[in-house]
Computed example of a mutant assay.
Amino acid sequence: MATRTQAPSPQKADELAQAAFALFCSRGIDGVNLDQIAAAAGVTKGSLYWHYSSKKDVILAAADLYYTRWREEMAAATGPAVTMVDKLEAAIAYSVRSCLLNDANRIFSTEVIALSVYDSDLRASWANFQDEVDRFFLGLTHQAVGNGELLCEDVDRAVDLMIAAMEGIKQIALFRPQICAPQSEQRTCRRLMSLLGTPA
């Protein structure tokens, strides 16, 4: 164990989470141990334990990193759009690129969801993130409908279906990877957008 002579460094904790995320994406969460994470981050195992008390804590930190990146990159993707429909289309396009076409993100999130079946802490972590994603898309879609840019009879149901469709595509990609091939991007975006309504 590391000698506790100074407070844990938030920067080092982030570096460990980033190293863990990269390893989890390439080798699978079960295929990575704490020694490998420490080595990838260039620290001792004792230093890793200084910041995280268990592998589960590292997984949760990697998940938090995933959530933070989603917030930052989604804001950048939707920020330049002018109308609410434009923002919605940009949000779906970013989601398809990040959640479906990006192998690392798709693999990591699929594994976290699978582990969440048996782990209440991981389940609560992912559920909070999913609630944030739901609120984000509900907000954009309600505004688009309210502005008269989009026709949709039941926004809540439409958003539920769109997100469920995206998650379904992610799962099917395990067996049919071509569904998440780059050439499918525009068609997938159009189909997901169509679930939210019809342009006014």
Score class of each variant (00 low, 15 high):
residue 125 S to H: 14
residue 71 R to E: 15
residue 105 N to L: 04
residue 41 A to F: 01
residue 67 Y to T: 12
residue 149 E to Y: 04
residue 104 A to S: 15
residue 88 L to P: 03
residue 139 G to V: 09
residue 184 S to C: 13
residue 179 I to G: 04
residue 7 A to N: 12
residue 191 R to E: 14
residue 51 H to E: 06
residue 63 A to N: 00
residue 152 C to G: 03
residue 129 F to K: 07
residue 115 L to Y: 08
residue 117 V to H: 13
residue 16 L to S: 05
residue 67 Y to F: 15
residue 5 T to I: 14
residue 172 I to W: 05
residue 37 I to T: 00
residue 61 A to D: 03
residue 138 L to F: 12
residue 199 P to W: 02
residue 24 F to E: 04
residue 53 S to C: 07
residue 6 Q to F: 12
residue 79 G to K: 05
residue 130 Q to Y: 08
residue 48 L to F: 10
residue 33 N to D: 15
residue 57 D to P: 00
residue 59 I to A: 00
residue 80 P to T: 08
residue 155 V to M: 03
residue 139 G to T: 08
residue 40 A to M: 00
residue 54 S to E: 02
residue 102 N to A: 10
residue 158 A to Y: 02
residue 140 L to T: 06
residue 104 A to K: 11
residue 88 L to Y: 01
residue 92 I to P: 07
residue 22 A to H: 08
residue 78 T to L: 03
residue 120 S to E: 12
residue 104 A to R: 08
residue 7 A to R: 15
residue 128 N to I: 05
residue 102 N to F: 06
residue 93 A to P: 00
residue 91 A to M: 05
residue 143 Q to V: 08
residue 6 Q to C: 14
residue 125 S to N: 14
residue 127 A to P: 02
residue 21 F to L: 15
residue 177 P to S: 14
residue 33 N to Y: 08
residue 15 E to T: 02
residue 23 L to A: 09
residue 184 S to Y: 09
residue 58 V to A: 00
residue 120 S to Y: 11
residue 121 D to I: 02
residue 123 R to W: 08
residue 80 P to A: 11
residue 75 A to P: 06
residue 38 A to E: 04
residue 91 A to T: 02
residue 125 S to L: 10
residue 136 F to M: 11
residue 77 A to F: 00
residue 12 K to V: 11
residue 91 A to H: 03
residue 27 R to Y: 06
residue 2 A to L: 07
residue 85 V to P: 09
residue 155 V to T: 11
residue 38 A to S: 05
residue 1 M to H: 15
residue 123 R to E: 00
residue 159 V to F: 03
residue 139 G to P: 03
residue 23 L to W: 07
residue 55 K to A: 07
residue 76 A to S: 12
residue 81 A to N: 03
residue 124 A to E: 15
residue 162 M to S: 12
residue 120 S to H: 14
residue 18 Q to E: 15
residue 106 R to I: 03
residue 183 Q to K: 14
residue 131 D to M: 12
residue 16 L to W: 05
residue 33 N to T: 04
residue 2 A to M: 13
residue 4 R to Q: 09
residue 196 L to H: 10
residue 145 V to Q: 06
residue 89 E to Y: 08
residue 59 I to C: 06
residue 97 R to Q: 12
residue 59 I to Y: 05
residue 108 F to M: 13
residue 56 K to F: 04
residue 47 S to D: 05
residue 47 S to Y: 09
residue 8 P to A: 11
residue 99 C to D: 08
residue 57 D to F: 06
residue 47 S to E: 13
residue 191 R to Q: 13
residue 170 K to D: 04
residue 172 I to L: 13
residue 32 V to E: 05
residue 158 A to F: 05
residue 188 T to L: 09
residue 76 A to I: 02
residue 35 D to P: 02
residue 56 K to A: 15
residue 36 Q to P: 01
residue 76 A to E: 13
residue 47 S to C: 05
residue 137 F to Y: 09
residue 114 A to S: 10
residue 112 V to K: 04
residue 179 I to E: 00
residue 196 L to S: 13
residue 82 V to P: 09
residue 121 D to V: 10
residue 41 A to H: 01
residue 46 G to L: 07
residue 162 M to V: 10
residue 129 F to H: 11
residue 3 T to A: 12
residue 183 Q to C: 07
residue 191 R to A: 09
residue 168 G to C: 03
residue 4 R to Y: 09
residue 25 C to N: 00
residue 174 L to E: 06
residue 87 K to G: 01
residue 71 R to D: 11
residue 2 A to W: 07
